[in-house]
Amino acid sequence: MQGVVKVNSALNMRSGPGSNYGVIGTLRNNDKVEIIKEVDGAYEIRFNGKVGYASKSYITIVN
């Protein structure tokens, strides 16, 4: 499943599905991501070869 990031500035990509996990990357508006699955209000995603988590509130599914 594919998604597009929709933010005003940037969205943190984290090592786990919550803000208490470390930041492993930054997503920008209109970045395209692969959605692997939904976990606790976040999506597990793949972006630029990395797998991490981002809030589903800022990712629009575009299948």
Rank of each mutant, 00 (worst) to 15 (best):
G25R: 04
I59T: 00
S15L: 08
G49T: 04
R46L: 12
Y43S: 00
A10E: 14
V4S: 04
N20P: 04
N20W: 12
G49C: 06
S15N: 09
V62H: 07
R28V: 11
T26F: 10
K56E: 04
N20A: 10
K6C: 14
R28S: 10
G52F: 03
K56S: 10
P17H: 05
Y21D: 15
G3T: 01
M1S: 09
F47R: 03
N8K: 15
E44V: 11
V62M: 11
A42P: 00
I24N: 04
K32R: 14
G25Q: 10
I61W: 03
D31Q: 07
D31K: 01
A54S: 03
G25M: 09
P17N: 06
N48L: 09
M1D: 05
N29I: 05
A42I: 11
N12L: 14
R28P: 02
E44Q: 13
D40V: 06
I45M: 03
V62Q: 09
E44T: 02
S9K: 14
T60L: 12
K50M: 12
T26G: 03
E38M: 07
G22F: 11
G18E: 07
E38I: 09
V33D: 00
T26K: 12
R14V: 08
N20E: 13
R46W: 11
N8V: 12
I45N: 00
V33F: 03
G16E: 05
K37W: 06
Q2I: 15
T26Y: 09
G52V: 03
Q2P: 09
G52K: 01
L11R: 07
R14S: 06
D40M: 09
K50L: 14
G3K: 01
K56W: 03
E44N: 06
V62G: 07
T26R: 11
G49E: 07
I45D: 00
Y58N: 12
V5T: 02
K6A: 08
N48C: 11
F47K: 03
V33Y: 01
K32C: 14
I24E: 03
G18C: 07
R28T: 09
I35Y: 02
L11D: 02
T60N: 10
G41P: 02
K32I: 15
N48M: 12
G22Q: 15
D31F: 04
N8W: 06
S55E: 15
R46H: 08
I59N: 00
N8Q: 12
V7L: 05
V4A: 04
A54G: 03
D31L: 04
I36C: 07
I36G: 02
M13R: 02
E34Y: 11
F47Y: 10
M13V: 15
G25Y: 06
G25L: 07
N29E: 07
L27C: 03
E44Y: 12
Y43P: 00
V23W: 05
A42F: 15
E44M: 15
I35P: 00
A54Q: 01
E34R: 06
G52E: 02
L11F: 05
N12R: 12
S55D: 15
S19I: 13
G25H: 09
K50I: 13
F47E: 01
G16W: 03
L27V: 04
V62A: 08
K50S: 07
V7F: 06
T60A: 11
V62I: 14
N29K: 07
N29C: 11
Y43K: 00
S9M: 11
V7K: 09
V51M: 09
I35T: 01
L27T: 01
S9N: 13
N48D: 12
G22V: 14
E38V: 09
D31P: 01
V7M: 04
A10L: 14
V62R: 05
N48G: 10
A42W: 15
Q2E: 11
I24Y: 00
G18Q: 05
N8P: 10
N8R: 14
G18A: 07
S9V: 13
G49H: 05
